[in-house]
Nucleic acid binder design. Structure first.
Length: 454
RNA sequence: GUGGUUGUAGCUCAGCUGGUUAGAGCGCCUGAUUGUGGUUCAGGAGGUCGUCGGUUCGAAACCGAUCUUCCACCCCA
């Protein structure tokens, strides 16, 4: 076993894997562009303070900090080192951090470039993000997010367009059965309000979010542990029975939230979104109103989305939601945004499990020239150039190795056609042209050869 | 951050309650075929058993630490 390796939770991607990954990225990118989004990129690192405090306490722990260059202990007093007061020391030894998601860097970008941006601004961004989490199934320390956000518009039409993008991308990737779960932060606020503990909104929603996973009893247990009274827990119970079709769920929810202004507002938003989706047709997506869905509570203020495959057991493969004031923390208030994120790596795992990748993804070499040496190169290299000019992916073996070795190379790279040009072929102009799949070989001139391939 | 799990040849793995030169299949290299791959045949290379330390006459095997893998929790794409 060699000593080389890569950090925990991070991966290499070999050519076959990259072909599949690019298939996903290309599909997502094409759809984003089709809906009018423009691409940006931001640096792998942000200033640490740009990121900290944006993802909750848990999130801060998962941010990879980058050690300062040079004498990074310069600013640290010996006393604080001895006391191991990490909270104070970290900012002194690390001023940069790897981005944790694409949304916060995007908010920073918008604030920084506000004078160049025409609002509403529709951008997309496909880049890796890093989290210092323990790796496990569907969870990596480095993974790609593919985000599309609209910032500077309150309209719910944006939410609808994003739902449509979920549908279009995942359908195009071949998924047959997936659910776009939708909730609204205002509904969650309403629930906390109705049971009289608005300050407990986060604890309540995080607990009921686990309903499907751990069951009702455990959820209630957790609620009790978080300091809710039995009476309050009793009031939450009707929410666990809110299953069924969206209309029915909303009807009962409206009844439940009748005394909460904000809660009713959330319901109206959900209804509006559902109504407008109705103007379009969805392919394979099922839109489900789910009051137990609680995501990104640290910044979402309106709609909350999460997409799960119903065919494979995996965490959520996409997420998203509306944040009324994300740029406010960077000094640009009153800009409302809504965005979604595709988790490309999880989508990959789902597609792999469902065998959804097309077999013909490879953009490998189509035509291979055997190399016999300097004299032959003089004859063959111009032909190679011509083939490439015709758009044929072609290559020549870089040295005059044994033919067996060259053929083997072509075989292992799955190159479908091989040209052999030696003395005989140079004299006659009839090239030996071999079909590697059938094993057949014939003599053709160069133009015929090009026609055979294209 | 908590709990569990894994590590033997390039890959997938075997290796008995500790016993001498650690195995298989696949892959790789060479030749049969000095201008023909994928099939066949013959031969060959390749491992300080994750790392460090301990127990023992003796450790791949037992113990400890550490790293890595995978899984669950927390949280999340």
């Amino acid at each position: 076993m060699s000593k080389v390796g890569i950090p925990k939770g991070m991966r290499d991607f070999s050519p076959e894997v990259m072909a599949k990954r690019n298939y996903i990225f290309d599909t997502i990118k094409r759809t984003f562009q089709l809906y009018g989004f423009e691409q940006i990129e931001t640096p792998a690192m942000e200033n640490r303070e740009t990121l900290t405090g944006k993802y909750g306490e848990e999130g801060d722990r998962l941010i990879f900090s980058v050690l300062n260059s040079g004498d990074y202990l310069k600013k640290v007093e010996d006393v604080s080192l001895k006391n191991r007061n990490l909270e104070n020391i970290t900012p002194l030894v690390s001023e940069k951090a790897l981005r944790y998601d694409l949304t916060v860097p995007f908010a920073r970008y918008v604030v920084q470039h506000q004078n160049e941006i025409t609002f509403p601004f529709k951008r997309f961004q496909i880049q890796p993000v890093w989290r210092a989490d323990r790796p496990q199934k569907g969870r990596y320390r480095e993974f790609y997010q593919c985000d599309a956000d609209i910032i500077g518009s309150d309209s719910l039409l944006n939410e609808v367009e994003l739902i449509k993008i979920f549908d279009e991308v995942l359908t195009n990737l071949g998924m047959q059965d997936f659910s776009i779960k939708m909730n609204n932060r205002k509904v969650l606020s309403g629930i906390a309000e109705v049971i009289g503990r608005p300050e407990k909104i986060v604890d309540i929603t995080i607990a009921i979010d686990k309903l499907e996973k751990i069951g009702r009893d455990k959820v209630n247990e957790e609620l009790l542990q978080k300091g809710l009274t039995n009476k309050e827990i009793e009031q939450i119970q009707p929410l666990f029975e809110l299953k069924g079709d969206n209309k029915e769920v909303l009807q009962r929810l409206r009844n439940y939230l009748q005394n909460s202004e904000v809660g009713l507002e959330g319901i109206v938003e959900i209804e509006k979104i559902l109504e407008v989706i109705g103007f379009w047709s969805l392919n394979k997506a099922k839109v489900e109103v789910d009051v137990t869905l609680a995501r990104g509570l640290d910044y979402y203020t309106g709609a909350i989305f999460e997409v799960v495959s119903n065919e494979v057991k995996m965490g959520s493969i996409c997420g998203g939601g509306r944040y009324a004031d994300l740029t406010g923390i960077f000094g640009l208030p009153n800009l409302s945004g809504v965005g979604i994120s595709f988790g490309a790596d999880r989508i990959y795992d789902v597609m792999e499990e469902l065998k959804l990748f097309p077999t013909k993804l490879s953009q490998g070499t189509q035509l291979f020239f055997v190399n016999f040496g300097h004299k032959e190169e003089a004859y063959v290299l111009p032909l190679l150039q011509k083939a490439r000019e015709k758009g044929i992916r072609a290559e020549i073996y870089p040295e005059a190795a044994k033919m067996k070795k060259q053929m083997k190379y072509a075989d292992q790279k799955n190159i479908p056609y091989v040209v052999v040009v030696g003395e005989e072929e140079m004299k006659s102009g009839r090239l030996s042209f071999k079909n590697m799949q059938s094993g057949e070989q014939e003599k053709v001139n160069f133009n015929e050869l090009i026609e055979r391939i294209s």
